[in-house]
């Protein structure tokens, strides 16, 4: 038997250890990204034998057509609605529960569990449940509205309302996640700082918040903002389950549009262009997220 030199054997071991994962990343991530980028400049359709280069045609269609613009503005509006509500409520709940630890720890833990529940729950199944909650006639929301003398509303089929309804569900789903991140930030604040604030005369609830809590939560908040934005940009499950982008594209979003154009209408080229635009948005956000994580590590 030929004995290979140690360097060769070491090289083979390295390949045997890291090769499969690296290969899988190349096959399922890097090559597909290149293919999507290339396809976005063609008119390729799934099943077609060949395609034509159409340059930026798909992109001008996305940015130029009313439908394409709708998907982009809807996504941006959805993100703009979810971020402040989800981050703000997450912060509020975290601070409330953190303080409650002093006088009612068990209740605080119980409420934390409740707020986190939607994060672990299957979103599609919960969307089906939301559909029943918001049902025009059988839903508990409209039943309450009628009871209070209000007008029942079509939460999911009113063009002016549907995106806001989806945003509420989006907030419902993410607020617990943000709460956990904020709670982690809050517990890492040394209690001596609050004592110092008390001594310095900043003892009231609000002044404590502004002198100690808020400045020290700064990096956490930045991180939570970006994570919430990243997740909001990917909104898909609720749209696919509850509205399919309707009515009349009033709740069409980027990911849903890329799904519909690509896999319902089989317009692979156009769908690739939507993908690339979505990718560009997320790339900016993810790189920002990396930067923040790096900075947070440096803080410690």
């Amino acid at each position: 038997m030929i004995r290979l030199s140690r360097n060769v054997r070491d090289g083979l071991t390295d390949f045997w250890l890291a090769g499969p994962a690296t290969l899988a990343m190349i096959v399922f991530i890097f090559v597909p990204v290149l293919v999507v980028a290339v396809l976005s400049f063609t008119d390729y359709q799934f099943g077609a034998r060949d395609f034509v280069w159409i340059g930026l045609g798909n992109y001008s269609k996305l940015f130029g057509s009313a439908l394409g613009q709708k998907a982009i503005t809807n996504t941006l509006l959805y993100v703009a609605l979810v971020i402040p509500a989800s981050v703000g409520l997450g912060l509020f709940v975290a601070i409330g529960l953190h303080r409650m630890l002093d006088w009612a720890p068990r209740l605080s833990h119980l409420l934390r569990t409740v707020y986190f529940l939607p994060v672990a729950a299957t979103l599609v199944a919960m969307s089906v449940a939301w559909q029943m909650v918001l049902h025009p006639s059988l839903g508990v929301v409209n039943q309450f509205l009628t009871l209070l003398g209000g007008e029942p509303k079509s939460w999911l089929s009113d063009r002016g309302l549907v995106l806001y309804t989806l945003a509420v569900i989006g907030v419902w789903q993410t607020v617990g996640y943000n709460m956990i991140l904020f709670l982690a930030g809050l517990t890492s604040i040394p209690p001596e700082l609050y004592d110092a604030a008390d001594v310095d005369g900043a003892g009231g609830g609000w002044s404590r918040f502004w002198t100690v809590t808020w400045p020290l939560l700064g990096p956490t908040t930045l991180f939570v903002l970006v994570v919430t934005a990243t997740n909001a940009f990917r909104v898909f499950e609720t749209v696919a389950t509850l509205t399919k982008g309707g009515p009349a594209f009033a709740s069409d979003t980027l990911v849903y549009a890329l799904y519909r154009e690509g896999f319902v209408y089989f317009k692979a080229g156009y769908s690739s262009a939507i993908t690339m635009v979505f990718f560009a948005f997320l790339l900016v956000l993810t790189i920002a997220q990396f930067r923040i994580v790096e900075r947070r590590v440096h803080y410690k």
Partner: peptide
């Protein structure tokens, strides 16, 4: 880490 799954779906 920068690539969301949605991006690779078509290929």
């Amino acid at each position: 880490l920068l690539v969301p799954f949605h991006v690779t779906a078509i290929p």
